[in-house]
């Protein structure tokens, strides 16, 4: 047997020891005589032992499982999505603050105006004199009844 006759099986069946016993014997005899094939086999065994013999199994980092869970879990419906958004830390603070502001503004706008009669009574009591009692004469003259009102209006 020469190198060409078993070059195809030298780096496969022969090194992996899957040749049938008869062929294995012939190959062993050839390798005993052929320095080139012997060197090829020796080199392959060295490379294989040096590189594959010492490697170990490596565990993935923990976040790989977390990523898998995220991808296989069913996606939430619209209600869950809204709930999730509302429970976000920033929104959970912003929403009550915004609601309070709106409520405050609404209450302010709804405050009843102090009636003219009450103002007039207050000023009369505090300052004395007549404040804004419209007489028929005032109406005829186009006056508002008081000096202040006449000045501003």
């Amino acid at each position: 047997m020469n190198c060409d006759q078993f070059k195809d099986s030298l780096l496969t069946d022969y090194v992996d020891r899957v040749l049938d016993p008869e062929k294995q014997k012939i190959a062993d005899a050839h390798i005993g005589q052929c320095a080139e094939c012997r060197r090829l086999i020796a080199d392959l065994r060295t490379v294989t032992a040096e590189t594959f013999g010492q490697v170990r199994e490596i565990e993935p980092p923990a976040h790989v499982w977390a990523g898998i869970v995220e991808r296989v879990q069913p996606s939430p419906g619209w209600f869950e999505k809204v709930c999730a958004v509302l429970t976000l830390p920033r929104l959970s603070i912003a929403i009550p603050v915004l609601a309070s502001l709106m409520l405050f503004t609404f209450v302010q706008l709804r405050q009843p105006e102090v009636s003219y009669d009450i103002t007039r009574a207050y000023l009369s009591r505090e300052l004395g004199g007549d404040f804004g009692v419209l007489s028929n004469e005032d109406l005829e003259n186009g006056s508002f009844g008081t000096v202040i009102e006449d000045f501003f209006m």
Binding site: D8, L11, T12, D13, V15, D16, L40, D43, L44, T46, V47, T51
Partner: peptide
């Protein structure tokens, strides 16, 4: 499988040499 293993091993030996 055989041919891929053979080529792989040839490449590895060549690289190491």
């Amino acid at each position: 499988v055989r041919s891929r293993l053979k080529r792989a091993r040839e490449a590895m030996i060549a690289y190491a040499r």
